[in-house]
Design a protein around this nucleic acid. Structure first.
Lengths: 134, 134
DNA sequence: GCTACAATCTGTAGTCGCTACAGGTACAAG
DNA sequence: CTTGTACCTGTAGCGACTACAGATTGTAGC
């Protein structure tokens, strides 16, 4: 499998990326169209596999498709690392923001759920919070 | 404004919920259709406002629309608090899971971004991680 | 009443990132 | 050749919205 090309199913299994997602990525231009067999089947090379694996790892790290486009466009530039860091730091800030928000939400909900401990009361503290005076 | 009805724009301003989102919620049955003026304009009561405020607070706390439907269906039941706690605890578990995941992602990215500190290298640690041997 | 402007209506389509068919063709194994 | 699997294109849908376009209604000022 080092030189030999392979089809979309094999690529899917190698990368963990759904077949339909692969075709979606091709449609939105994130990955290039591969050559086709005489029958019209896609024929992927090792480079395609590396690229898709890159994309899957980036998605796993939470980068959006737009950010991944940016990262891909940076590769090969002299300033790669500096600009990649910029994209990454921005992404990290977003992750921090989300963690803070979720931590805050957790705090509110835990506090309310604890007051539900009895389990029988007609007046429910969670509902009371959600039904704050309006 | 205690007895008087109001239009969708006023409801939007009072609740912070976008006009189009209000119509969307009505369309998906999350909120009831209000009565209309002779000209066809929606006419909302204070109860509508309270309900929508409930929904907006629930959304802010990260409950999905499906979960909000559940919460709304529980209101008025003798076992409200117990079942609300169940929905809430499930939601809390999901929040915990997301926090853990984001914390892990942050760790990976921070580690890689730190190695970018020089900013000039052609070989970029972030890109290297994403382009792990495939 | 008229005019001008803002508010509101319905219907449709799009965002993001997928995911799931339907109906047809290509490919591989026996 | 037959059978079963892989793959194709095109379309539509998911969740939670969001954004028009074109038309009608409502309000304020003259």
């Amino acid at each position: 499998m080092s030189i030999k090309n392979f089809g979309i199913g094999a690529l899917s299994r190698e990368t963990g990326c759904n077949i339909e997602t692969i075709r979606y990525y091709e449609r939105i231009g994130l990955i290039p169209e591969p050559p086709r067999s005489n029958g019209g089947h896609r024929s992927y090379s090792h480079d395609h596999l590396r690229l898709l694996a890159f994309i899957m790892r980036s998605r796993a790290l939470g980068f959006s498709i737009s950010e991944i486009r940016q990262l891909l466009s940076l590769i090969g530039n002299d300033k790669t690392c500096e600009q990649v860091q910029s994209v990454t730091v921005r992404h990290l800030k977003e992750i921090n923001r989300k963690i803070e928000e979720l931590t805050r939400l957790r705090s509110v909900l835990e506090s309310a759920a604890d007051k539900c401990a009895g389990g029988i009361a007609t007046d429910c503290p969670v509902i009371d919070i959600l039904y704050e005076n309006a």
